[in-house]
Nucleic acid binder design. Sequence first.
RNA 1: GGGCAUUUAGCUCAGUUGGUUAGAGCGUACGGUUCACAUCCGUGAGGUCGGGGGUUCGAGCCCCUCAAUGCCCACCA
Length: 873
Amino acid sequence: MPQPMPKNFDFAEAERRLYAWWEENGWFKPEAAPPDAEPYVISIPPPNVTGALHIGHALFASLEDLMIRYERMRGKAALWVPGTDHAGIATQLQVEKALRDEGLSREEIGREEFLARTWEWKEKYGGTITGQLRRMGASCDWTRERFTLDDGLSAAVRQVFITLYEQGLIYRGPRLVNWSPGLQTAVSDLEVEREEEMSKLYYFKYPVEGGEFLPVATTRPETILGDTAVCVHPEDERYKHLIGKTAYVPMLNRPIPVIADDYVDREFGTGALKITPAHDFNDYDIAQRHKLPLINIMTRTASLNENAGTYAGLDRFDARKKLWADMEAAGLTIKVEDHLQVVPRSQRGGEVVEPLLSTQWFLKIQPLAEKALAAVRDGQIKIVPERFEKVYYHWLENIQDWCISRQLWWGHRIPAWYGPNGEIHVGQQPPAGDGWTPEEDVLDTWFSSGLWPFSTLGWPEQTPDLKRFYPTTMMETGYDILFFWVARMIMMGLWFTGEAPFKVVYLHGLVRDKLGRKISKTLGNTIDPLELIDKYGADPLRFALITSGTPGNDVNLDPARVEGEFRFLNKIWQMTNFVGSNVDETPLEAGAPDVAELDLPARWILSRLNRQVANVQYLFDTYNYGEAGRQIRGFLWDEFADWYIEISKHHLYGQDIEAKNRTRRVLLHVLNTCLRLLHPFMPFVTEELWRYLPHEDTPLILAQWPKSDSRYISDEAEAQMTVLMDMVRGIRNVRSEYDVEPGLKITATVAAGSHRANFEDYGYLFSRLCNVPQLHFIEAGGQAPQDTASIVVGDAVVYLPLAGMIDVEAECARLNKEQDKLREQIAKSEAMLANEGFVSRAKPEVVQRERDKLAELQASRAQIEERLSMLCR
RNA sequence: GGGCAUUUAGCUCAGUUGGUUAGAGCGUACGGUUCACAUCCGUGAGGUCGGGGGUUCGAGCCCCUCAAUGCCCACCA
């Protein structure tokens, strides 16, 4: 033991110290591995530069750091590239809000000033989130940190835009787009959320030449003012005669045609459809087919414009009310019905999105999507869990052109200039000559995010980092941004680098509260990771997050669980303290002693350990990190601490120096191995404990990931040990049932049957584990003492003399209960073995195991039977 | 309208290619704890694995079907 350990883990102090120590030594850098090491690279999902750490960040940070630390320990050149995203709309809104508090607006101060303020804002708050990721223990290479608006990344964005433009994949033009009136910008289809809401369906009369009325239904009466046709189904007998006639827009009396199109559903509403091509996506399509004019009736703020006649200037919802009232007065209304409608709302802010005609930049994305589909189909990229591949295919197969321009100020400005004669120049630099005006719009934030895996490594320059670390290895992120981000990175990566940007996509779920509800401020169920870190440290939070769920599924996090993992952490601390304080200065040979030198408990624990290591490896290979963590925890607590450490005290406190040293080596080896297994989960406490134990000349962060040594795995040792353990449990059980004073030492009589040797050699287990310090051996079938309770395991029987406490009747009842249980199991087992199908078809080892089990059960039954006949007749 | 997921103990969740008596944490009952334990240890109670059907020697796990819940996608005014 190099130095005495503090009684508990002072995580607040240690986390800071260890993190600085790791970082200063350059161990977060891939250069910590040999130059020829295989790279393992994760690009961080860049959080909003001005954001603060929330529980979702804590989850990805825990998972990605686990992956990075694991691969680093496996000798890879592990690189976790950190960075932040400028998050166009979100950041702009924050700064605008700050401006409003000063009584200013962005329009008042102008673009230049606004951007200057936003950069200031970024400088002020930009470090918050990265500082918080450090507190999580994230072992990012901070020397390679990037920001989406850095010069390098901005150059990459321009390069990509220009190339796509030159390839004819980016075009500009007037189109119907999803317009956010509050933000006054176009948004992409993905940024629109559609929810079913109860609203109204308005029925009204469309006057048609000749004095007839055509009944029409709409959910948005104000759009009547922009109608350029009324449409019926060509075979609708009710309205057939009206096709080709002229109808008149209510209140405006503008003449429009009655047309026919089989898009119309005769069953819905009145079976007649008003066509507002400038304000509805379906109507737009129909208008294209019928070459109808488009009349835009709205402004950028979704109030009505001059095309709306007397309604000009009114907000869309006020116009709806007023127009309907006027129509009612004019006798043109029929009725209003409740109607369940899908309402498009902005992902940010929740206002109703308006389809609006406007000139925007679009990316024809189908050619990119085809490559992206192929990359997953042919296995270049694997998505975990696999079921998301289907979702991915479906989206890409039906992908629409992407509206990439935004009418914002904070973002990558589109590298385009407009000439005096209407020409467009797209390039890195403004064109020569006068009279060119630059494009005002910026790009969708996700446009730059799509380049993240390669732009952060220096692309388009062929930097050493790009050569060595691209393509990256793992993309770990939430399934909620599969389309927004992951699919786009794959498309952009394949298109511009010719390679899939990563090999594996691992998707995690959302963190929810313990009742499975979405975390939200209004529900008041937020879980603040920083608060939990302050209270318990980062390790328990990490461990709880990772072990609370399974890949791809949402995590219902119970803060009580974090406390539980804190107790686990303390338990490991105490185990290490115990082991450490029982190792003196004499240096011991490292590693576990040879199998041949070991006693049964040691053979057992090392068999269990190596089995566990192999199992953890399997679970890591299949990305089941949560289960791996749970199993390590179970092994350490339930097997190592509760059994082996207790057993080890016999030698540690004994006089046999060799046995003592062997035991110390076993204890150290198990602990050493488990600290390494646990390090990716709980980096801080494990690294700290590592310092207190004799170890190889490396920090734990660079220590070698354990390998299972199959020479130690022994079914036989485990089976033999299990008999002794079952007997201990049986004795404890009886003592508890009979309310025997726990401190009372009992001398037992034992008919050990085939386990005689082990009961003799390891009799001390009973002294230490169930307060039975002496065993008196008799032959099987020998005379058992009076007034005893008997415990049977296989063919071994332990008689506990409980004079004065044993009620013969109670003991018989207990034995009979045992016997019933045995009988049931034996019957089941016999039935199985009597089944020809089972014996001939099941794997031989399964059949053999069943036979052994039956023999064991029968032996127990015989023992109990004998006991019953003696005691209970 | 399509698609996906979930349903296992009072609560939150595991359960790896089908194979002993289905597990953990929290909660709960009882008992103990100077001698590693900001505690910890021991012993219990608690589950017909959502319903039904099927495949199989054998099903919590595979197939079909129904139900509930949640999510994603989608142009019915």
